[in-house]
């Protein structure tokens, strides 16, 4: 292998790749540094990559009233775990059926799944359905259910499952196994990389979402981590806007300090970073399979 690698090209590759890797990590370090800075230093000197006076004040402040933060962790973790599980189950069942070339309705069902990617009735009827007809407003269901079947994930999963040799399924069927048995005992275990890949996408979608919260959440106990962050940001934008300043609202509200905002960011983004390495092995393998079959 090594004989076919040219030294110059390899050196160049290392330079470019490590350069980009540093670019990827640096902004996170900046956020970390701000979260560890003294507030007055930030106000007078601005942001820096290395805190002038390192301090844990911001974290202490965030954790002084940990109730909201802890409950938001609870919400986000529950939603991510439950959402990913059920989403995977439904998605893979549907995708498996679509991947069966001998199923006469496969093509029609595929179009049925694909169509909503292009057309929707818009926000208003959808909101009415979720919030009023199904009565999910202000419940965790509103944060889980709307994302259960994402057509794009179904098609992705279909790509993975299509790569299975038909002979294996044929053999099982000859042995008299039911479709359910084939699916749960054979198809799922054989497609771990693909499932891990879709699982990661699902988990990311749920973990990073604030949109459903923005629409359906009304009380503090159902506020997720990302929504907590989003609210802080949108409050700052609103309260420092001309409208609010001139209405005299700004001075009545104390916004979180800059260092505390960044500490919240670290706390919200952190867990996903630790989870990723566990996924990484399967994830890349899954993509390799997926890349061949699209």
């Amino acid at each position: 292998m090594s004989s076919r690698r040219s030294g110059a090209i390899r050196a160049l590759s290392h330079v470019v790749l490590s350069g980009f890797s540093i670019l990827c990590i640096l902004p996170l370090l900046l956020i970390l540094s701000i979260s560890l800075s003294k507030e007055m230093d930030l106000l007078t000197d601005g942001y820096a990559l290395i805190p002038k006076t390192p301090t844990l004040e911001a974290y202490a402040m965030v954790f002084r009233h940990p109730d909201q933060l802890l409950s938001s962790y609870g919400v986000t973790i529950t939603v991510t775990v439950a959402g990913t599980f059920f989403s995977l189950l439904i998605t893979s069942m549907l995708a498996y059926v679509l991947s069966r070339r001998d199923y006469p309705l496969a093509r029609k069902t595929s179009f049925f799944v694909f169509f909503p990617m292009l057309f929707s009735g818009g926000l208003v009827p959808w909101y009415i359905l979720v919030a009023r007809t199904l009565g999910m407003r202000d419940t965790l269901f509103a944060l889980i259910v709307p994302y259960l079947v994402i057509p794009w994930f179904v098609l992705l999963m279909k790509g993975f499952l299509s790569s299975m040799p038909a002979s294996i399924l044929e053999a099982a069927r000859i042995d008299g196994a039911s479709e359910y048995r084939i699916f749960f005992r054979l198809v799922l275990p054989l497609n771990k990389p693909g499932i891990a890949t879709v699982a990661l996408f699902c988990a990311l979608l749920y973990w990073n979402d604030y949109w459903l919260s923005l629409l359906f959440i009304q009380t503090t106990r159902t506020v997720s981590l990302q929504f907590l962050l989003f609210r802080i940001m949108s409050n700052i934008d609103f309260l420092t806007s001309a409208l609010a300043i001139q209405a005299g609202v700004r001075t009545q509200v104390d916004l979180p300090q800059q260092s505390a905002r960044m500490a919240m960011c670290i706390l919200a983004a952190g867990p996903m970073m630790f989870v990723f390495p566990f996924f990484q092995k399967y994830f890349v393998k899954g993509l390799i399979v997926g890349a061949v079959k699209g």
Partner: peptide, 21 residues
């Protein structure tokens, strides 16, 4: 009494009015 944040209040109330909450 339900309080919405400064930054999201107007959005939420408009969505609610539009959807007849």
């Amino acid at each position: 009494i339900i309080t919405f944040d400064w930054g999201t209040y107007s959005d939420k109330l408009k969505t609610m009015a539009a959807t007849g909450e």
